[in-house]
Write a protein that binds this DNA or RNA. Structure first.
Lengths: 345, 345
DNA sequence: ACCTCGTCGGAAAGCGGTTGCAACGCGCCC
DNA sequence: GGGCGCGTTGCAACCGCTTTCCGACGAGGT
């Protein structure tokens, strides 16, 4: 079938070891034989078999990329960045789709069988224990978009979802809303739990503000729309902080269909700032999650672990920023706090 | 590091071959030793090394999944379906991101090094020669969403883009539009070329219809929006068939921003029927591409090739259907052709 | 001319499996 | 009781490559 080392060696008139060395960076070969070997290899179309070599080197350069977020358009971007980033470093992503699986057992076994060098868990909904299962199986792992935990057993790269919840609360309060609500994703999603916690916690400081919350069934347009439709049947809040952008857009469509004008009748804000949120016919006010940084940093960590697998687990949280667009009303002009320009003396 | 065959053999008190056989379906082992082996394996946490075994069996169960469409949300769905479908059959997708690469050389080499059992090229823009490069390198390959060609060297699964162009033309003509245009994706994309061809070909049959075309720089919202903005500066057509949904939505936003009402002032239709097209606040009239069928069929073919690599290349095109939503005006009520109900005699 | 040292290349063992082949034990039949 | 056949098992070679170990060889120094 494929051309092997031995055939190249034969043609070049050297031993198999010589050929192997010719292909390994920094091995002890004279320039002369290396050229001979390369010429023979080229003539034969030889490609070193990465799998066979992994048998002795113990490195496959395979990285398991496991995710359960195949609904959220943002994750296409995440996959794009991950695959490119890994490729650039000579690593190969072995994709694992976790949809409908909550037990890590199967993925762990499979990735073990393929001796992946490391695992990236890219999910905002899975519990920390999921990523830890890989670590317990002895694989380097980083959990991207994962939940921060004081006693983290694995690397976590992402954002501070609790703080994002607070930020959303502050933003809405600054707009003068007093009846607020959180429209979350699925209850089991760690990201929704944390965002809700921060949001409600911040609002609880204000006695004059009414806060409530409810949950959509999944992080999807349809679920967001349905939940908002349900909410609109009784008395809705003045503004909603939604579990993520997709949910917000679903809610937005429900509000429009109900004849409500956004933002004058009802306010909405999301989280992620996925590309669609910026589309002019959506124009969603949201909190931007620094995806590129998260991915880049995750890759950096996994690469570092290839060298030092026992590296102490680290948590890297990146700051999020508010992206103001058109789904929240402007801050009220509060005369009491509006100061005249300070005279130039 | 990991537990090996030999350790299991030792514990179970049998030879290595026995262990190997215990793990291979249909091998000649007595039930008794198989149980002994399994017990020992379980105790040790043994996992057969898939890569090592591939060395002798010649099968890795790795399938290269190569794509360059990491911008189009539809492809997240495609990846979802592919990864799940492959997983279900015990195959593992090795993801290759082709962004910014048009030369198959690198991917071919890489996938060869990892001895993938087959390759799925999932792209609506790459030329047939791309997929053929894998075949020439001796790998089973199927081109999903690829271009049909009479002399196809590889399996192609997708839709008849030329026919879709015609269908779009017929649809718009039936709506009574007489000044029509194609707003395509990048010129190099085979899907855009074919859709344009069918569209213009069908329109050319009608002397009373004016047809034109132009191209966006990429299959993205932004590019669609920009191109439409440019078109609106001079005299635009009455309706546009866009290269795909994302482009249409970009165009839609440009039209709205320009104060045009869709569909009364301008008509738009897309192609794909990606999920977003159905979102109520987008509500795009479009042509549905049967993604699940395409993916399912692609997997079926690649699986078949694992058994019979020299299978004769086959082209499977699936029919598309019009999905009527809100971006085209209704057909005119043409009195001349409206027939009275046929009396029941 | 001889010795030393460094460089280079070959032989061989091994990485974790699979598999053809031969041997073995057992039950059965004649 | 001997022969036969079959199911089971172990041995050993091999898959394609890496790496250790060692010997050969050439250059440089004295």
């Amino acid at each position: 079938m494929a051309v092997t080392l031995r055939e190249v060696a034969q043609l070049a008139g050297v031993s198999r070891s010589a050929v192997s060395r010719a292909f390994t960076e920094g091995a002890s070969v004279s320039e002369k034989t290396r050229r001979r070997v390369m010429k023979a290899a080229a003539a034969l179309g030889y490609r070193p078999n990465a799998l066979a070599s992994s048998l002795t080197t113990g490195r496959t350069k395979l990285i398991g990329l496991v995710s359960n977020n195949y609904q959220n358009p943002m994750f296409l971007h995440v996959f794009d960045l991950f695959t490119r980033g890994l490729q650039q470093r000579g690593l190969r992503p072995l994709l694992v789709n976790l949809t409908d699986e909550t037990d890590p057992e199967n993925s762990v076994r499979m990735l073990q069988q393929y001796s992946v060098d490391g695992v990236v868990v890219a999910s905002s909904t899975l519990a920390p224990s999921f990523a830890e299962a890989f670590r317990e199986a002895g694989m380097p792992v980083v959990h991207s978009f994962g939940r921060y935990s004081r006693s983290a057993q694995v690397h976590v790269v992402g954002i501070d979802n609790v703080e994002c919840g607070r930020m959303a609360a502050r933003t809405l309060l600054a707009r003068g809303y007093t009846r607020l609500a959180f429209l979350g994703g699925p209850r089991e999603a760690t990201s929704t739990q944390d965002r809700q916690q921060g949001f409600l916690e911040e609002l609880s400081k204000r006695a004059d503000v009414a806060a409530s919350h409810s949950h959509a069934e999944s992080y999807t347009f349809k679920a967001g729309r349905q939940e908002m439709q349900r909410l609109l049947r009784s008395e809705p809040a003045q503004a909603y902080f939604c579990g993520d952008d997709v949910l917000s857009i679903g809610a937005l469509s429900a509000a429009s269909d109900a004849g409500l004008h956004v933002p004058s009748d009802i306010g909405l804000m999301g989280l992620n700032d996925m590309e669609i949120a910026g589309w002019e016919n959506i124009n969603l006010t949201t909190i931007r999650q620094p995806i590129s940084q998260i991915v880049e940093s995750s890759i950096e960590l996994i690469v570092a672990m290839l060298e030092a697998p026992d590296r102490y687990p680290e948590t890297r949280l990146f700051p999020c920023v508010l992206v103001e667009r058109g789904t929240l009303r402007p801050p009220p002009v509060d005369l009491a706090t509006t100061r005249p320009e300070r005279p130039t003396r």
